[in-house]
Design a protein around this nucleic acid. Sequence first.
DNA 1: CATGAATGAGAATTCATTCAT
DNA 2: AATGAATGAATTCTCATTCAT
Lengths: 196, 196, 196, 196
Amino acid sequence: MGVVLRSPGAVSDKREAILTAALELFNERSFNGTPMPLVAQRAGVGAGTIYRYFDSKEALGNAVFRACKTALQRQLVERWRAGLTPREAFRALWRGLWEFSRDNPAAFQFLETHNHASYLDAESIATSEAMFVSICDFVRHGQSAGALRDGDPAVLIAMAFGAFIGLVKESEAGRFALTESVVAAVEELAWKMLRA
Amino acid sequence: MGVVLRSPGAVSDKREAILTAALELFNERSFNGTPMPLVAQRAGVGAGTIYRYFDSKEALGNAVFRACKTALQRQLVERWRAGLTPREAFRALWRGLWEFSRDNPAAFQFLETHNHASYLDAESIATSEAMFVSICDFVRHGQSAGALRDGDPAVLIAMAFGAFIGLVKESEAGRFALTESVVAAVEELAWKMLRA
Amino acid sequence: MGVVLRSPGAVSDKREAILTAALELFNERSFNGTPMPLVAQRAGVGAGTIYRYFDSKEALGNAVFRACKTALQRQLVERWRAGLTPREAFRALWRGLWEFSRDNPAAFQFLETHNHASYLDAESIATSEAMFVSICDFVRHGQSAGALRDGDPAVLIAMAFGAFIGLVKESEAGRFALTESVVAAVEELAWKMLRA
Amino acid sequence: MGVVLRSPGAVSDKREAILTAALELFNERSFNGTPMPLVAQRAGVGAGTIYRYFDSKEALGNAVFRACKTALQRQLVERWRAGLTPREAFRALWRGLWEFSRDNPAAFQFLETHNHASYLDAESIATSEAMFVSICDFVRHGQSAGALRDGDPAVLIAMAFGAFIGLVKESEAGRFALTESVVAAVEELAWKMLRA
DNA sequence: CATGAATGAGAATTCATTCAT
DNA sequence: AATGAATGAATTCTCATTCAT
């Protein structure tokens, strides 16, 4: 868990430490509510060091966002194999979301909270959009196969992701635990909502 | 629309103007990203005037939150009449949410975005909790009547509200329009997810 | 006690209330540390009302200072009668100071604390100077009569007044009580310092 | 002169510059009448730099007070040697005061003006009290030896210190110069007041 | 006359960023 | 490369003063 921000190749563990510290603090205190020196302290580096890796606080925020989004996308894509039925593919997606949010709760929360943050740049938004498009493809496939109900894929995606996000948020608020069995049960409910 | 922040009784319209300006700006730029003078400017008052109505920026944020939450609760409660079947009650709830988010998009977004903001005080959290509790009651009634599926009410609520919030967010992101017919259709889908 | 700020003629009890409130608050919180609305509140008048009686905060401060200084001078002068021996005149002066500080502790403290305050205007300084000059005359008379030791009158005045002020300050700090008997005793000591 | 605020050990000279600037400005304009940026300007540092050395304006004021008080106490204590007669000890004390006020007029004025300032914290008051206690001991010794007149030591201290403070104030107001010969003369007068 | 809500300049304090070491 | 002291612009909040009522 929390390995999400490891850059490919042994770039630098300072860079990772900064990204991790920023992720945690931006969740705890919001982007604007987090002083850079605090990020440096949590990362165990000097304040000036952050600026060797990131041009500005905004650049750091975008780097965190893209790292999280990319990691989520990787995890969802990994679970997709050719030849899955729509029902199996939905299960793969749903469990991929769950495993990601379980293993990287901070990253998941960050993506949700900072989804439309005003500091996000074009590249971050494009990263976000790319993932949406690939999920859309999945839905269209399921609709073509007659397994998913008709209608705007964006609507179905909004409802299913929204339901999952709602579950994660409320479980993190302490209302219930998202155990294996609960996750399996709610997957079934979500599927009832989406199937043709 | 946007009348949500009107306090009962002929309270000063400056207070309302400040609440409205803060609501909009906290949505647009986040709480910490919004300077008080900007709130004052948007409200058409002097910077010092805000502090005649609110003790601090935090107090202003809490006042906005409570005003929105109270307005939402009022709208949902109003639609509830005795003698509704669970299905009718769910429709009332769902449409209440929709009408609120349609008529007060800023208030709805604020509640969603600032739901667990670090500046919220005990009273704001209590206001939030009170609403959750009354929705829980609704779910338990439906379960007793055999209309809603069994399980932790919090889980069902998280999924249904989550789905609705997902719809509103994505429609506001411009992916689709939440028209009457779409709302009716998705209500049906949500009900499929919840019914026994 | 505390009647010091009563202007001659029935000017206005609001004016007096403002002067009294300002005197107390300037002592408690310093001139710059006292907001005008607080003065208004303590005086039981509206904030704007102060400006009907005084042009500005500085003007109010100067009015307080002059009222206190004038009252002190009046009290000291009253005790002076022709035909007193230097020793008797010193007693009159010393007891005059004591009675004033006992009956108007706030006024006495104000005069001491704000003696060289940066907001004092020329007239206030002149009022202060006038009193010094008349005390100087007293000293010179005593010196001519061979009762007071020779030397710069200002030096003797500085020491005697300084000693008295020291007594009042420390008694107000709670180190001892300035009772009749103590005052009589210290008067004797001060006289030992001054006599030829 | 003015070396009073030099902290022992090679502490940053920025800290000293800030203390010195604050001392001067608080004297000239009062504590509440002095904006922090003005302190920074006079100290030749950035406004934010002050807060690297002092938590708040109040903390700065207390640091100035304690530095002055400690320096005065050090100077008085240094002049005390065992085996002095009460008369010699009084001379040591009196001259210690004089040398301190001559060499550090700003520090002396600050101690006098801000002696009971509302921003002083418990530690500052304790520092102040400690010095009073040690002077009290001196007086009691003199009384036991039959050299100083009987009575509450606090009363004698109040008169003697008050007289000295009066001299310094009036000399600084320009009424006379506190030359060596004047100081010697007034010391004699003060002794006449105190001796048995 | 009296009021006190309203104002905006100015106060204390914070923080993104730089740069000497 | 790394640091963290230093900076000053920007932020939150205060308050002397005004003016509509």
